[in-house]
Design a binder for these strands. Structure first.
Lengths: 218, 218
DNA sequence: GTCTATATGTTGATAGAC
DNA sequence: GTCTATCAACATATAGAC
């Protein structure tokens, strides 16, 4: 085991720290940053509350680490899919598939991130910088520029109506993410139960790309 | 002044209570339910903290009153617009116009409601019942049924592709509401500042109805 | 590294004077 | 109705034993 030094009572290296981080992610996602209690994370992790501070020093740092982890998994996906060499149609398909799958598996993420965004607007900046290793804004600018070029080609070929790359992204993300963010509302005003919502999402994976493409037809 | 009894030191009837409620709405919208401090509401209202309890008994009741007030202004709009006698096209226009105007004036509402929905899923039910005077679910069922009929007509006339009334509502609301919910994110990943976002919304009021209608063309 | 015990600061809520 | 003063409960964080 390279890089491993002899130490006393730990079962496996970094295991406890990871257990705490996992528990923290579950609790922060469920209860929100302000609503989360350190004691609840300790309980969920099966350890003592003092251990949380031993590893993460403060609630502030722990919640930052959790947000960084979650944002680091979600946001790069957008950039990766939109940057790749595939066709515009293919990018739509893949963005829809990826997002609906991810969010179906983690339905609390949208509400959590939206809430975080409003109360700690600076955290995205930090999180993205941490994930990408540098200022994310020029990267995103280049992503949008590439996307814009691809859109322009199709527009000039008469196959698509004109739309800014910004609107393209906003509309596509809105249609993917909002149903999860507003799930409890739709369950009431549209009379869906949990099973109906699952069916709705499964159906949506097939239909949404076509709906979106159709919206962009000339 | 009918119904008014003689009382001592109050400037005007209900004025203080209203001031507190207004302050509470601003603070709850800004800081979220869990993040709000009663002291902060008192400060914002220019009164003492004890007065909040005198009028509303507890933070729980005050936050419920605020949510009820906000939900009571937002949700009935959907039902009203979708139920009216106007054409489907007209309903799309009006829903987009109403929502974008309302949310542009109150950009914190989406994130607040989404957060509330997840941490107090029962409150919508209560709020809507309070607003409409009875169980909102049969009302919404009837709204959807009417909308479905209107959609069916256009589908049979070959002017529109088939879509369930539920998807119709979800897609339209997603495109209207999500940009506000995720505004801080878009400002970073799309390089928008506040002014650019305002322009984007003004533009969207013109373009979104057409985008949505186009998506539904056969 | 992990625990128990405790210090320190907030926060919602009440008592009681005016 | 409105205020000041204060309580009791809770939450974050630290000290120190093992």
């Amino acid at each position: 085991m390279p890089g491993r030094t002899l130490r006393a009572p730990s079962p496996r290296d970094g295991e406890t720290e990871q257990r705490i981080l996992d528990a923290a992610r579950r609790v922060f996602l469920r209860d929100g940053t302000a609503g989360t209690r350190m004691q609840e994370i300790a309980r969920e992790a099966g350890v003592n509350q003092a251990l949380l501070h031993y590893y993460f020093r403060s609630k502030e740092r722990l919640s930052t680490a959790v947000f960084q982890q979650i944002a680091g998994r979600i946001f790069p996906t957008i950039a990766q899919v939109l940057t790749g060499p595939s066709s515009l149609d293919d990018k739509i398909d893949r963005l829809v598939a990826t997002y609906l799958d991810t969010l179906a598996a983690n339905p609390f993420i949208p509400a959590y991130i939206i809430s975080e965004l409003h109360h700690h607007p600076d955290r995205i900046q930090h999180a993205l910088t941490g994930v990408m290793g540098s200022d994310p804004r020029p990267v995103m600018r280049s992503v949008l520029q590439q996307l814009g070029k691809q859109i322009d080609e199709r527009v000039r070929a008469g196959k698509m109506r004109d739309i800014t790359p910004q609107e393209f992204v906003i509309n596509l993300l809105s249609l993917c993410v909002f149903p999860f963010a507003a799930k409890p509302m739709f369950e009431i005003i549209l009379g869906m139960d949990d099973a109906a919502f699952k069916r709705f999402i499964r159906q949506r994976k097939k239909e949404l790309p076509e709906f979106f493409r159709n919206a962009l037809k000339p």
